[in-house]
Design a binder for these strands. Structure first.
Lengths: 327, 327
DNA sequence: GTGAAAGCGCTAACAT
DNA sequence: ATGTTAGCGCTTTCAC
């Protein structure tokens, strides 16, 4: 494995000149450049990023912290992040936290150790105070989840409004007993969507729904099923369900089908995210679409700008109610 | 941002001693160790991995090359890889190739540039000759996809046998006109599963099925739908379908439902992978389960061992036919 | 236009 | 048990 010294020696130039050729620095005569390039080829020389990184005090790595890679919502975002990062010669260090704070600290150490130049955070469980301290020293952006108080830049949607739209629609098509399948309220989106849900109900004078709110432990199909089973056991069954994630909605849908009830005639259901699966269920799922891919691109760009020391602005993307067969 | 020098100076010791404390080297008196640790705390010193990596000529990064992160099959594998890697103080550099060879070369350069210590390859599109050359110099293992000729270690299942089991089962429950929805035959698994399919049909004296084999462009729900639409247009409709991926099977299922036919009474369907979603469809999908998570763990361990210079053995995991409602 | 040399932060061989 | 020092591979400043 040749290094820059050998190339320099063999080409009869100094390492500085080789470095100049490597970095397309203009101050090299065409003749020298050619000679150096030839030797590079002969030796199959590949510059070491370890050396370059140390010298430049950068890793060109972006730390991506997600709760759970198995949720297609996150995979789509990652798609966008990666595409954008690679274009700008960054790579992503993918880290799944499972919302485990110990795991999180391991990963967050990567930035303290200079192994990452910045963090795209999609998990809310980080200790808030620590996070804000951290963001004073390091480049951090949040995606989807964010903190209203701090000044960590973020990319997200208006979760409250989106939930409000979903529930208002359920009311308008004739539902009064509308259940909410929510995830853990440690997530900002969970709190916001609940607020949107409550706002819609309140606006239409619907009360006494507290019994119809269910909080899941995690976001899995099974949690959705469990939630729905529980809701179906109530003496006052809901006529509609709003789930804060397609994953939960799909689990709920399954459970309704299994119980012999029909969607949407007996129970309507609305999900959230518009993951690809949501169009493959029976019946297909009405849902709120979020521009996951674009959110990924935007957060990567935002982070890279932040790393470069530029000022960045929060971005709130539009959502859309996609009406399909489940309502 | 303090460095090792400052810590040494402030603690009144040499950098070597600080390094010893950092690396839990035993040759340090308790008193010195305590003093150094105290200064480390005072300065909030965090050792730079950039320096350490250069010095040790390692990146402690594992390059994970996958065709497509949106396929839950791969996310599950990644789960296993990450879990295993982190335990051994490695991190993963996730790279999605989209089976694009240009993209692939960008990523593969990462190992040449010492930015990765090894590669877990799940994509078959790499130029074979180049790959074998590469594997002579660098640590590479393959997961799921592999090369029968070369000697790149791999983790996989017996794809031919698994497909054979699936199709034999379809025959035994009374099907003769069995369609195959296959993906691109650039994938080894696609060729192997086709072989298993053919073997089963041949064994039971079933012929004239070539019209019932469909190759998709990619592995998406839409491709599955497209394939099924095409198969349903044949004058001799199949009574059963074997799809080489749950994703394709789910798309096909959707299309059958949409056409008014019933699964399994009109058409039976078997998928492959046992992704979580395969249990959420209507009806639930009979499928071949692969131990994705374990495959991920095994390939990470294998790669790390290879990096350490150990001898490694190929691993072929067991599959299982999981009979559910679609057959 | 090119070269010499310093130095990024760390580890480890060697010396004491 | 601890210190001195070389050097991992690169970029960049300063001379010429």
């Amino acid at each position: 494995m040749a290094n820059i010294q050998e190339v320099a020696r063999k080409a009869g130039v100094s390492v500085a000149t080789v470095s100049r050729v490597l970095n397309n620095n203009s101050n090299v005569t065409e003749k020298t450049r050619l000679k150096v390039k030839q030797v590079i080829n002969e030796l199959s020389y590949e510059p070491s990023r370890l050396g370059r990184n140390l010298r430049n005090s950068e890793s060109r790595l972006l730390l991506v912290l997600i709760p759970n890679i198995s949720n297609p919502f996150y995979s789509e975002i990652i798609n966008g992040i990666e595409e954008t990062a690679v274009k700008q010669d960054y790579n992503i260090l993918l880290c799944e936290t499972n919302s485990d704070s110990e795991r999180e600290s391991i990963y967050i150490n990567l930035i303290k150790n200079r192994m990452a130049d910045g963090i795209i955070l999609m998990d809310p469980t980080v200790n808030k105070k620590k996070l804000h301290e951290l963001s004073e020293t390091y480049s951090i952006v949040q995606c989807s989840e964010y903190d209203k108080e701090g000044n960590i830049p973020f990319v997200s949607i208006n979760n409250e409004l989106a939930a409000y739209h979903a529930v208002r629609y359920l009311i308008k098509i004739g539902n009064k007993k509308i259940a909410l399948i929510n995830s853990d309220e440690k997530f900002l989106y969970a709190r916001e969507r609940k607020r949107g849900y409550e706002k819609a109900l309140h606006e239409f004078g619907i009360t006494g729904y507290s019994d119809l709110i269910y909080h899941t432990d995690a976001v899995s199909f099974e949690d959705g099923q469990l939630a729905m089973r529980c809701l179906l056991d109530k003496k006052e069954k809901p006529t509609a369900v709003f789930a804060v994630s397609d994953i939960l909605a799909i689990g709920a849908l399954k459970e309704i089908n299994a119980s012999g009830l029909k969607v949407p005639s007996d129970i309507s259901i609305v999900g959230f995210d518009k993951i690809a699966f949501s169009n493959m269920t029976y019946p297909t799922l009405t849902t709120i679409s979020q521009p996951m891919y674009k959110m990924g691109c935007a957060s990567a760009n935002m982070l890279i700008n932040k790393i470069k020391g530029k000022q960045v602005e929060n971005i709130t993307f539009d959502h859309e109610l996609v009406i399909r067969e489940s309502t």
